[in-house]
Design a protein around this nucleic acid. Structure first.
Lengths: 216, 216
DNA sequence: AAATAAATTTAGACAAGTCTAAATTTATTA
DNA sequence: TAATAAATTTAGACTTGTCTAAATTTATTT
């Protein structure tokens, strides 16, 4: 088995790999909230274990083995988030920190049974896909609201920013997963967006539009 | 907050305190599966934190603060065991190791909601009492089967030995929590006990009788 | 392409928790 | 009660994961 720190590094490399081919030492340091020198030490260790592909000064990618572990941690994280929201009635902005601890509970049998208990959910409370017990999941092809034009629209299916502050804001505006929205107007001045939702009209900033994901 | 190691020491001291006033360094070392010198180091640390009462060479007891933490960990352990058995269909001999990890999930809000979700159970799958959110619970007054005489009996309400091997044996013999039994005969030679249970007669060794707890 | 800046790694140190071996204290026994 | 045994603590070392400061490599700029 791997240590807590190792698991967190693998998970972080996985997340950062979605936006860049190679993940750099500094990127990782910023993401994990640690120093670059600490990252270098850990990268050596993970490379020795065969979990990453690491060339000094050139950044890292996950190996097949490393990716498998990372996806499994993400599966656990998202299933526990689903559990916390659907079974224990937590709000979607309250569960991240708890799931951050729970994702390291080691038993796979446990997580598979939890999956079954909840009816094999496909998405977590933030719309992120939950890998199945084989690590398979569809990366759904979502667009930020900021990427579509006037009179276009779709269904809210995810968020880019997972911070409690952003999630609380969305909830207050009823901009929740499953909601249908249409772009009514884009303000030329600040590129803020006026949305048409069920019954109501609503203005959101460019910042918000960038972080709100929809399926067309 | 306290580290994983600190929590495990406090929990262990609590458990050992049930059988002896002062817990000795060697007792702890054996229980935690570590060396006496490591125990001494940790005891100093816990004493500095005010969680135990420690006099060198004289063993330890928990302070009020330490006991509160220990009971909270035990509450978490037992609630997670209940969850694993009642919601995820694990058997009573399969859950200890998993709960050993889960008891360290820090959120109290989480455990209180889990408690509510399950309907505030009073006992874990092995019959041990679950402390409530204030740390209160009844230490029920159980006797081992070996302590009662012929024609006496009661209801199985707990076990002393929590090892999978023992629990599996009991399950195979249908000696499970809630079962009514009566002592029919005690073999003079090896002090093994013949039990009368619903319909069946059953012989158990002294060893088993010592570890099977009943309420009269 | 040389000089400077940015990114990364190396060297050496530290805290937590553990270990072995030696020293000390307490308990037992002759 | 002195000698021996058992229990406990101290001293010093090791591992993991972190840090700061210095050295090195890569990227950028003039």
């Amino acid at each position: 088995m791997n240590t807590l720190a190792e698991e967190n590094y693998l998970k972080s490399i996985y997340h950062l790999s979605l936006n860049a081919e190679n993940v750099s030492t500094n990127q990782l340091a910023a993401f994990i909230n640690t120093k670059a020198s600490s990252v270098t030490d850990m990268l050596k260790k993970l490379a020795d274990k065969g979990l990453i592909n690491y060339t000094p000064y050139q950044g890292v990618t996950l190996s097949k083995a490393g990716e498998k572990i990372a996806v499994n941690i993400i599966r656990k994280h998202r299933l526990w988030e689903y559990f916390l929201v659907e079974k224990l009635d937590f709000k979607w902005d309250e569960v991240h920190e708890m799931a951050e601890e729970m994702e390291h509970i080691s038993s796979n049998e446990l997580i598979d049974r939890l999956d079954k208990f909840m009816g094999y959910p496909k998405h977590d409370p933030h719309g992120d896909p939950i890998p199945d017990c084989n690590g398979l999941f569809k990366i759904h092809n979502l667009k930020p609201v900021s990427a579509i034009g006037v009179h276009e629209g779709g269904v809210i299916c995810g968020v880019r920013d997972h911070s409690p502050a952003f999630l609380q804001y969305l909830e207050k505006q009823s901009l929740i997963i499953g909601k249908k929205i249409t772009v009514k107007e884009i303000n030329e001045f600040d590129r803020s967006v006026i949305l048409q939702t069920a019954g109501k009209e609503l203005q959101i900033s460019r910042e918000v539009a960038n972080n709100l994901l929809i399926a067309l």
